[in-house]
Design a protein around this nucleic acid. Structure first.
Lengths: 339, 339
DNA sequence: CTGTTAGCGCATTCAA
DNA sequence: TTGAATGCGCTAACAG
């Protein structure tokens, strides 16, 4: 394995010259630069990442923090990681995966003390997440995917829930729907102050009022019976409901089964729109669901570039904190039935 | 940030003594050891991973290689990564994610030359994968998840397809089914020699013969029309078919829709068993599907520990190369209908 | 524009 | 059982 010394010796210059030439850290005469690159190539020289890190005090590694729980079905969440990795590599960084208990601040502290990573990207943050305090205390740059309400207003990237809800209601109104149901996630999540549930809750009522829509919200877990009961009340309590918005990927199967089980057709009798859903997930239902899908690519690109800007002490432009969802029109939403 | 020097100074011993004490690399008197640990704690000392790596020529980082393609719906594949990370961390290693083109041998070579990682875990390997040659050439320890037929017989962990197929057919036979359909993946995959397709193909015919079952295999992609046609022929060609084995997670929705669309009930009229499916995926269909699910945990544990054994030059016991699936009985398989 | 040199923080060989 | 000294390979002052 060739080292920088070998390259320097071969060209007849000092190691620093080689270092500067390769990193472009300092102007080097064109001819020497040429010779150095040539020699490096011939020797198959490649700088050792570790040695470089030790000297420069920067590892060019960032870690993505996941809770250590099994999460059962998570539709296509893998794209999240591969995307993050790709974005990071494009900017010269490596992506590490750390699985920790949400409460594992001590373990996190130890990991950070090793100084293996330059920054952190936090997933699935809950309100008043204690890891955030640890990160600040250890003075580690970080960014949150999903918003923690206790966090400073400058460290997160999230879905634009208001925009999504507005467009969704507007879309349905355009189809002639005046009575819309909204199946949110569990009441427990709501009481816990879980961001997506809270934001969509607020947005739904706000825009229903705004658009003159008669809207009703239902909280619903994803266990079969719960979903069944929820659909039951949605369908029987309000016969005029002709469209249903769902932010609950895991309950979708049950919801569809419940509706069709009642002899109702989608979208002829009732329209269904999934929101904030994982990219592509909705397409695998029967019928394929019209959905406002998270823009994973945009979210990750924003998160990674912001994080790296922060690491490198560059000014991080705050332009795109909230990322809009992408509307994919498929076959579950249609004109309101006339009665 | 305290360094090893600070600890040494505080206790009044040499840095090497501290190093030996902390790593247990050399016997140290009990009293000094005690003092050293105490001082380390008091100073919040934690060895710098990078410095340690440079000196020891081992980074304790492994990389998991993913193809850079978007894979649309991959049910709960995220567990794969978080699981791998957890296993690795349990053994003192960090997990890095590298997304590369399957054909990106040059990029891989460059990455390896940086000596950032001690070993590699390869995902989604295809027959005659050129990355394997690169890995060998660069003398990097690696392990394959899924079998490459050109690979040496000692570098992979895979699903035990034969065991799974045997148990599945046996299970259905026990339920009284004598005519079984098997929906494999696309014919294209088969012609490409894709491992899972080839192995289950062989196993299906072998065990049908063995168990005296009348079996028929169907190749089937996951596009809606393809699936529809497949179900059509399965249902009409052979009226006696009372059970169907599926190794095609993405086609499941269409298959179920096709069957129920024909007015047939699952499992009363026809039993459905999903095999080699992602953990938990089958539970989200309607009805919840009986399935032989991949044992991600076992596979990852085996892969990581084998890889690390290889990295550390330990003898890697070859006991569990092929990991059996786990049968989860749910509601889609029942007694054969009597006619 | 270029060279010299001092670390970065630790593991480990050589001496004792 | 311990210490001193060397070096891992590179970056970045400092000095020309």
């Amino acid at each position: 394995m060739a080292t920088i010394k070998d390259v320097a010796a071969r060209v007849g210059v000092s190691v620093s010259t080689v270092s500067y030439a390769l990193n472009g850290t300092r102007p080097i005469s064109a001819e020497k630069k040429e010779l150095i690159f040539k020699a490096a190539r011939e020797l198959h020289y490649s700088p050792r990442a570790i040695a470089r890190s030790l000297a420069s005090k920067r590892t060019h590694i960032i870690a993505m923090l996941f809770p250590a729980v099994e999460r059962g079905l998570g539709l296509s969440e893998i794209d999240l990681i591969t995307r993050a990795s790709k974005e990071a590599m494009g900017l010269g960084y490596h992506l590490l995966i750390w699985t920790l208990q949400t409460s594992g601040e001590d373990e996190l502290r130890e990991l950070l003390a090793q100084k293996l990573v330059d920054g952190i990207i936090l997933m699935e943050v809950h309100t008043h997440d204690r890891r955030i305090a640890t990160l600040k205390e250890m003075d580690t740059p970080f960014i949150i995917l999903g918003r923690d309400d206790s966090a400073s207003t400058e460290n997160y990237i999230d879905v634009d829930f208001f925009d999504t809800m507005m467009r969704c209601i507007s879309y349905l109104k355009g189809l002639g729907h005046g009575h819309i149901g909204f199946i949110n996630q569990s009441e427990r999540s709501f009481n816990d102050g879980y961001g997506p549930v809270a934001h969509t809750h607020e947005a739904f009522h706000y825009f229903c009022a705004n658009f003159g829509i008669d809207g009703k919200e239902y909280f619903c877990g994803w266990e079969a019976e719960t979903v069944h009961d929820c659909i039951e009340s949605l369908l029987t309590e309000r016969n005029e409901t002709s469209a249903c918005i769902v932010m609950n990927d895991k309950a979708l199967t049950g919801i569809i089964a419940g509706i069709t089980g009642k002899g109702l057709r989608i979208p002829e009798d009732i329209s269904l729109v999934s929101i904030i859903s994982s990219s592509g997930a909705a397409s695998f239902f029967q019928p394929a669901l019209t959905a406002f899908e998270m823009d994973i690519n945009a979210m990750m690109a924003a998160a990674i570039s912001q994080l790296i800007a922060k690491i490198e002490g560059r000014y991080a432009e705050l332009s795109t904190r909230l990322i809009p969802c992408i509307l994919r029109e498929r076959n579950s939403a249609g004109k309101a039935r006339t009665r």
